[in-house]
């Protein structure tokens, strides 16, 4: 019997879809029982987590220290919870990437990053070199398996479950050497980039933050989230949390429209799993056309208004 603990990512009492996807990955482990751990200041997120289909129990740890999640503070608590499990999973978002290696080291074990495919209880496939190669890995079954889940590779579980909520008390002392100060979010109206079914992304060719509004307009019309290439973020046209790629967000929308993005391999790795990729670029040699399902060569400043007009009709 494999016992898997998924560490929930949540904010303001709402469990992030990355958790639903991590649970979906955990349920693919043969002969598995899946629990979800919620570390929070109150019960709200635990109540939400209890609805995740396939989850047996929600392990609820409420402490004031978890009002804001700080990896250095929470890691000893997660390490303590891990004692009863063969596997501990977390989403490969900045949340999971931050905390899980710390938990692994506290437990004296390694960690697997970015599970793409589950082939067995200790057998997985993960990407390396920005997804340009896939490694097939057999993990030592004698060791506890900690892993982050590449969320673009899994569909979220539904919210039709009814897991029991168990209260857990942590005896580990939690360090106070790392303190939350503040969080600021760019005001991104519209759907969340990581779970959106449609995404419109802009690149360096937009030329300015002002012109980048064209991307917002098209996205709004399509009910899409807005993304950006690294070049556009570096140039200050778009906020950092919009970056799509190897070091930004890895996304898997049904429709991805790349506007004025040349398509560096680091960007392409972030969109590989999109079902349909549309590329609009004035350079017909741009690498983005190698991965695009539909390519259109031309000046974005002419094509975008025309596209909006045709969609509006």
């Amino acid at each position: 019997m494999n016992k898997i603990l998924v560490i929930a990512e949540h904010m303001a009492g709402v469990v992030n879809t990355s958790t639903h996807k991590s649970v979906a990955c955990a349920l693919l482990i043969p002969d598995a029982e899946v629990d979800v751990a919620v570390l929070a200041a109150d019960d709200k997120a635990a109540m939400h987590a209890a609805k995740l289909a396939g989850v047996k129990s929600v392990i609820n740890v409420t402490r004031n220290e978890f009002t804001e999640f700080v990896a250095s503070t929470a890691a000893p608590a997660i390490a303590e919870l891990a004692a009863n499990y063969t596997h501990v999973f977390a989403p490969s978002t900045t949340f999971g990437k931050d905390v899980l290696p710390r938990v692994a080291a506290l437990l004296g074990v390694g960690q697997l990053s970015d599970i793409m495919i589950v082939n067995g209880s200790h057998s997985f496939v993960r990407p390396i070199y920005a997804g340009n190669a896939l490694v097939h890995i057999d993990a030592d079954p004698a060791k506890k398996l900690l892993a982050t889940v590449r969320i673009a590779s899994f569909q979220p579980v539904t919210e039709t479950g009814d897991a029991t909520i168990e209260t857990a008390n942590i005896t580990a002392s939690l360090p106070t050497h790392t303190r939350f100060v503040e969080r600021s979010s760019a005001d991104n109206a519209g759907p969340d980039l990581q779970s959106a079914t449609r995404v419109v992304s802009g690149g360096r060719a937009l030329g300015s933050a002002e012109n980048f509004q064209l991307i917002y307009k098209l996205a709004k019309q399509l009910g899409a989230a807005v993304g950006a290439s690294r070049a556009a973020v570096d140039a200050g046209y778009a906020a950092n949390d919009l970056q799509v790629g190897q070091t930004g967000k890895i996304i898997a929308p049904d429709l991805y429209i790349a506007v004025g993005i040349s398509g560096a391999i680091q960007h392409l790795t972030g969109i590989k799993d999109a079902r349909t990729i549309v590329a609009i670029n004035k350079d017909s040699e741009a690498p983005i056309f190698e991965v695009a399902d539909i390519g259109l060569v031309g000046d974005l400043f002419t094509l975008l208004p025309e596209l909006q007009k045709q969609l509006g009709g």
């Binding site: 904010m11 900045t94 931050d98 790392t178 303190r179 969080r183 906020a239 950092n240 949390d241 967000k249």
Partner: peptide, 10 residues
């Protein structure tokens, strides 16, 4: 740089 934006720690 976190998924939700920018976060500051001390």
């Amino acid at each position: 740089e976190v998924d939700a934006g920018l976060e500051t720690l001390e």
